[in-house]
């Protein structure tokens, strides 16, 4: 479960003055639910997710993730979260097995437990062929699978995806989407940020439209269609952010 309450992040900037990257954003995500955070580049999606993953500290408001406050218990929050983003890379000189084991150990797992879980993840993600190869020799698909295994090794209750299909080919992107569905099936709380409308339509139970750091609209797809009188999600998005419709 995620409960964001007036989450705010302001970055100081000497030239431009304070930048409100996230401005009093509140939303709630239940277990077994996929919440889509839809926004253009620079809308505040990544900052919001980094706040939830405690990579950044909020300047106002807070969020509770799996019962832990992001401001006061960041380490406990991170133990509950699997964070996958285009910017979270792999250690090129480690093998996939070593990479997964490293994050298992950092999450406090014993080696025997890590071995069992790695075997299970390798089965599920079809990784056995490259499990003992160094990550710097991997194709994009192999890298994504290894990253997924890295986020899942400690079986987190919350999964945060920050534009995970960015720059991926169709087949690899489909594998990611399938994996997000599996997370939902396992009753995990999922937050998925993207600017790709089709992914949101396919995946998300509820959608939050973010723009200029503010959450402008929120609801299920049918609710948003009814509110804006549009069927097409792109048109809904444009109207929500105050742009000119076609």
């Amino acid at each position: 479960m995620i409960d964001a309450r007036a989450l705010t992040k302001t970055f100081p900037d000497k030239k431009r003055g304070p930048i409100h990257a996230v401005d009093r954003v509140s939303f709630h995500v239940n277990s077994g639910e996929i919440y889509g955070l839809l926004g253009a580049n620079g809308a505040g999606k990544t900052t919001t997710l980094r706040l939830l993953a405690t990579l950044l500290r909020p300047t106002g408001g807070t969020a509770v993730v799996s019962g832990f406050d992001i401001g006061t218990e960041p380490e406990k929050v991170r133990a509950q979260v699997g964070f996958l983003a285009a910017s979270t890379a792999l250690y090129g000189r480690l093998t996939a097995r070593e990479m997964i084991a490293y994050f298992g150990r950092l999450n406090g797992l014993e080696d025997a437990e890590i071995a069992v879980r790695t075997g299970r993840l390798a089965d599920e993600l079809d990784m056995h062929a490259f499990l003992d190869r160094r990550c710097d020799t991997f194709s994009t698909g192999m890298k994504q699978k290894t990253s997924i295994a890295r986020t899942l090794i400690h079986d987190p209750a919350v999964m945060i995806f920050d534009e995970p299909t960015l720059g991926l080919d169709v087949m690899t992107a489909r594998a990611i989407v399938r994996f997000v569905h599996e997370c939902k099936a396992r009753r995990k709380t999922v937050v998925y940020s993207t600017h790709v409308m089709s992914e949101v339509e396919k995946l998300c139970d509820r959608i939050g439209i973010i723009h200029g750091g503010k959450l402008l609209a929120e609801g299920t797809l049918p609710e948003l269609r009814a509110r804006y009188g549009e069927q097409d999600l792109e048109e809904i998005f444009v109207r929500a952010v105050g742009g000119d419709p076609l």
């Binding site: 990579l55 991170r78 890379a89 999450n107 890295r150």
Partner: peptide, 9 residues
């Protein structure tokens, strides 16, 4: 990889 590492608890 720094961001990946910072995601750990």
């Amino acid at each position: 990889t720094m961001e990946t590492l910072l995601c750990s608890p």
